[in-house]
Design a protein around this nucleic acid. Sequence first.
DNA 1: CGTGTTTGACCAGCGC
DNA 2: GCGCTGGTCAAACACG
Length: 334
Amino acid sequence: MSSEPKDLYNHDPFQYDRYGLGTTSFSFSSNTSSIDEHKSPLVVDPSSQTLHGLSPPYMSFTECLHGSVEYNTLATAFGLSPSSSEVFSSLEGDNKTLETTRGHVPIIGTTTEVPVSTNSSESSFSTEAGNEEYSSSSKKESETKGCEDGDENPNKKVNKQKKKVDKRQREPRFAFMTKSEVDHLEDGYRWRKYGQKAVKNSPFPRSYYRCTTQKCTVKKRVERSFQDPSTVITTYEGQHNHPVPVTLRGNATAMLSHPMLAPTPLAAPPPGFPPELLAHMMPPMNTQHVSGGTSSNSFAPQPMTHFQQQQQHLLNDHGLLQDLFPSLIFKQEP
DNA sequence: CGTGTTTGACCAGCGC
DNA sequence: GCGCTGGTCAAACACG
C-alpha cells in the first residue's frame, strides 16, 4: 500500500493485484422495477473486515466460499438465496458504513480467493434483481415527460436537466469495492467527472463520472469507505454501448473491459463490467459448474447479444484469456 | 484548442 | 412544510 498512487493509476487493475493492492469486493446491483430511484445500489460494505474474514457473523458465508469458487457458489451469491440474505441482512444492523440516507443495498453474496494473482482477492457480490422495466414511479421521469412538450422554461438549467432526465432509463447498477489508494480506478473506459459531493458521515467525497463516449450513458460513482479508507467503492450504472477505447495500452484491460465480455451462463454481470471485476469473475464464470439450484436467480441469464457471443467465441477459441491470465483456471472444456 | 476537472448552485425526493 | 441529502448542471479553470 505504500506504492505511489500515480503510478498505480497508470496501470491496469490487474496490476493492482500484482502489486498487492487490488483486493476487491464486488456488489452487483441490477435495479428492479420496485427499486426506488434513490435506493442506491451502492454497496453496503460489511467493511473490509468482513471481507477479510475478521467478522465472525460473516465467516460462515466466507468460509463457504473460501477456497472454492464453485460456480454454484456464485449462483448462490447471485441468486438471492435465503442464506445469503440472512447473512447480509445482519450487516444492516451492524454496519451502516455506506448506507445512504435513501436506502441501501445489502450484499448478498461473497466469494473469495479467486486465483487471479498471487494475492488473494476477496470479493463480495450483491445484486438487486430485475431491471426490466422502469418503474413509472420515477418521479423524475414522469415529471420530465410532463414538461417535455410545452416548455419554454426560462430556467435553462432546469430545461437541460429535464432533457437529460428524460433520456434517463432504468439502468442496471453494480458496485464493487477495491482496496486501493487510487480513487478512480482505471477500467478501460474514458470517464469525465461531472460532480463531487460530500458524503454524509464520511470525510471522503463522492465523485461522479460519466462515460465520455457519445451516446453512452454509463455513469459511475466513486467514493472511499470512511471506515476503511483504503477501500474504494465504485458503483457503475448503465451499460456501455460501445467498445472500449482502443487507446488502452493494448493490454488485457482493454479487452476485458469490453462491455460484452462479461456474460456468463448464470450470473452475468451487466455489460460494461469493469475488467477489474472481470478478472475475478472470469474463472468462475467460465466454469461450467452451474448448479441447477438458483433458477430463480433474478440476476441471471441475460441472453447474449450477438456481439457477446462473438466475443465469447473468440475467447474460447483462441484462449485469449488464458494467454492473458495464465494463472486463471479455465474449465471451459471437459 | 480540445479535453477533463473543480466547484457552487440548483433540483427532486425523502423523512420528520 | 421544511430541512437534509443525493444527483446533476455548467461556468470557470487547468492542462497537454
